[in-house]
């Protein structure tokens, strides 16, 4: 009995010992020096691997930051607080990041833009735009099937009445959703208390655009003349606001003649609360 047990025990034990010696030797011989800082930085990052920094994942960002000490690296989901915290950890003066949010450059809800036909194919914006112009007559509009929603790691996007709606509180401005849109109606603009932007993406001439959508920019240039700072320009039949020059006076919003005003003035929730208080 004892002898039949000894052999397996010894053989297994010796093989295990030999292997452990080999692993020990190899791990010493092939040891890779790793900066413990990388792990610390990685733990501080949001860990959503959104790729907004331009690097493949948070770990890559941590490695890059520790290795190159590049002060221009930014983490849009983490915001300026995180970046400055990272900077102080590494003893670096990080570049200022201006927070941005994502906005939808389309107001083509079901009753605003005319539909083409009922679409019953694959429920995906890219597939829908390939069949014909898409479910809506405007070829520049938000297709409204929500292909971008899956790209948002923060749950900030939802479909509402045929267009995408972005929750400002949840949006971190990472920009991961932008390449997911076939008609390019998503854009990043600086996060301000008062955001003014043209919520239209149509490059069609005014007469054409007006036929299919009552919220389309008709390129009348009224806003352009109303702006004291020359912050608005025309680009191929579409008004464009230079966000850096805009001071949020909202004069352009008043003059816009389009039925469903295509210039949107959006106030941050904090600002709205303040105004409510003032008004009583």
């Amino acid at each position: 009995m004892a002898s039949s047990m000894i052999l397996p025990v010894i053989s297994l034990g010796s093989v295990a010992f030999a292997l452990s010696v080999i692993i020990l030797y190899i791990s010493k011989k092939f040891h890779v020096e790793e900066d413990p800082m990388v792990e610390i930085i990685n733990d501080m990052l949001p860990g959503v691997n959104c790729g907004a920094c331009g690097l493949p994942g948070c770990m890559a960002f941590a490695e890059e930051l520790v290795k190159t000490k590049n002060t221009n690296l930014t983490c849009p989901p983490g915001g300026s607080d995180l970046v400055s915290a990272l900077g102080s950890k590494l003893g670096l003066q990080m570049a200022e990041v201006e927070p941005v949010t994502c906005v939808v450059l389309c107001q083509g809800t079901h009753n605003v833009v005319k539909p083409t036909a009922e679409y019953v194919g694959i429920q995906d914006c890219w597939a829908a735009t390939q069949t014909f112009v898409g479910p809506k007559q405007c070829p520049y509009s938000c297709v409204g099937l929500g292909s971008c929603i899956a790209y948002c790691d923060f749950g900030a996007m939802s479909l509402e009445d045929g267009i995408i709606k972005i929750d400002d509180e949840l949006c971190t401005g990472c920009g991961a959703c932008i390449p997911a849109c076939p008609t390019k109606v998503l854009a990043l603009i600086p996060k301000k208390d008062k955001q003014i932007f043209i919520a239209c993406n149509s490059h069609d001439k005014g007469a054409v655009a007006k036929k299919y959508c009552s919220a389309a920019c008709i390129a009348c240039q009224k806003c352009l003349k109303a702006c004291d700072l020359d912050a608005i320009t025309m680009d191929n039949n579409l008004a464009v606001i230079n966000q850096e020059a805009c001071n949020g006076c909202a004069k352009c919003v008043e003059v816009c003649p389009v039925e469903v005003n295509c210039i949107i003035e959006r106030k941050a929730s904090t600002l709205i609360e303040e105004e409510m208080k003032k008004a009583g």
Partner: peptide, 8 residues
């Protein structure tokens, strides 16, 4: 072993 060697 493969993991350690490959990493290096």
């Amino acid at each position: 072993v493969v993991e350690i060697v490959l990493k290096k």
